[in-house]
Design a protein around this nucleic acid. Sequence first.
DNA 1: CTATTTTATGTCAACGTTTACCGATTCTCG
DNA 2: CGAGAATCGGTAAACGTTGACATAAAATAG
Lengths: 328, 328
Amino acid sequence: MAGVTPKTVSRALNDAPHVSKAVRQKVKETAAELDYHPNLAAQSLIARRSYLIGLTYERPSPSYVVDLQNGALGRLEDGRYRLVVLPFNHVASRPEELGRLLLRAGLDGILLAPPACDQPALLDMLERHKLPYGRITPHSELDRGIVVTMDEAAAGQAVAAHLLSLGHRRIGIILGDPSHAASLGRMEGYRRAFGDAGAAIDERLVVTGDFTYDVGYRAARELLAQSPRPTAILAQNDDMAAAAIAAARDLGLAVPGDLSVAGFDNSEVSRTAWPQLTTVNQPVRQMAWDAADRLIAALDGKSDVSGSRRRDHAHELLVRASTAPPAN
Amino acid sequence: MAGVTPKTVSRALNDAPHVSKAVRQKVKETAAELDYHPNLAAQSLIARRSYLIGLTYERPSPSYVVDLQNGALGRLEDGRYRLVVLPFNHVASRPEELGRLLLRAGLDGILLAPPACDQPALLDMLERHKLPYGRITPHSELDRGIVVTMDEAAAGQAVAAHLLSLGHRRIGIILGDPSHAASLGRMEGYRRAFGDAGAAIDERLVVTGDFTYDVGYRAARELLAQSPRPTAILAQNDDMAAAAIAAARDLGLAVPGDLSVAGFDNSEVSRTAWPQLTTVNQPVRQMAWDAADRLIAALDGKSDVSGSRRRDHAHELLVRASTAPPAN
DNA sequence: CTATTTTATGTCAACGTTTACCGATTCTCG
DNA sequence: CGAGAATCGGTAAACGTTGACATAAAATAG
């Protein structure tokens, strides 16, 4: 920028006062021409901000991850903030390690998906270092930080009630990773639905998976090997439900004729599977958007304006082709 | 850090000389205790590095995106570099806009997935601003930047040859988004296979999709409405192949009995679909890892050591349950 | 046409680190 | 024990930007 001090350039580009129209115009033109952009490191240094938002999650299904990212990115679209992805496995066993990773990453704020959002040790650490965080569908300590939730129990109750209302009573349940709070909440909802229907959960028909297809397949095989065989399977996510369908098919069972299967999440698999899965829509995208929105509001000092810190999003039961009344 | 100059702290933590063992030890202990980390903005400012790597792609299937990310993240695991995700739609129509976005993001380097990796205008811009880039499976200008490829044509040839060898001749083809170079390369492979088999591609049986399930479904319906009906469908990715299966089913056609379907990518859908899809494995994770590896080597000034700039990864034909000889 | 305000431009310092350099202390060896 | 080398600690400057403040120029008022 010839003949102009950096200060003036700064003022011109930032639409600060005390710059003549002519100079501002010229500076902007020249900047555009040279594709000049102020050095972010220098801006960060002085503003004490990195304009980086982190997103942490733990090897869940691709569609969940992408929804999460796209939701957050949708809010960041103006380009002022950037999204850094920080997947991390086995948080439960080493929360401080994730904490150090996050602190070292130089973020302005962090979005925590399950199960990281439910690690008190991690939250302690973030608070100690004054790193703002948003929690997406946490299960415990709902008064800490920015919280965006869906009522997992209500959703679980809805899908279980659907199977019960069709007449199923011998219902196998494939749990997700027990360290994910969602797993507990959904199970809680199942229990309520059974209670409401005057039915009881047979603990022998409850097996633990980890939200993955492969483990879900083995769990389904285990359930279907029992006698009397369950007439329906409630899987805690769609990947495991798809696996249950595959297991049924490999045993020569028709879905939903011989076995009804319900999933959870309304992920892509639930639509590409055959028959299409009855599932529950979890508005992941919207929740991630909302969490990012409120995190940024907090970073910009507008948190008080936006009101309460917690926000609930509604679930939606999607009855599709994988569930029907039991055969007998 | 009481009683010690910042300089000494810096030296101690960076294992630089001129610090006594005692002081270094003490500094390190105190730093660990306070979870102190050097300010990244300040380090970036002086080092003229942000330690941020960008990853750009365009709304492809979730599993592709996640493989891409995980591949790159696998290489970044030491935590020195961080990954910023920058999805961008319709690059073809506005490459300079993406260029500006990338330049403004303050990255040290950028990984480009299709179709961004094939935009000469974008590459020009990045080179003009000396922003190093790695290209994952580009189709054109293979001598620019760091290039990681799979021979799409060879892979396309393999899957087409498979159908031809089963005896299919009326083969419908569902193309992907024509702006993705992969689409062209795969088609080229199909042509070669047809040529080798002494067969001809019937252009009326070639329809254009965009790699998405929904458009794939409509394309499949269009193909299956023709008479004589094709006995097989080659879809350029698994999502569209899954859609083709659904379309066949909705018309009462058995797969693979009445219609064989082959996909591309070995994505999650290809395994959760039923019947499981015959497809081609594209080692996305490894390619992303490799691209990140070589990009970082270049950033660290070690690019000459690693040798050639281009690298090919092998495809793998996965014959599963969705293909069989034609009925008649 | 001067006094006063408004507007435009420039200077200095600061953000937190690292590099380059310098002085002081301790060590080594003749 | 003294000369040189190695080690340790510190100071000044720089990275590129912006905020606080000062000064110069232009516009306005009296």
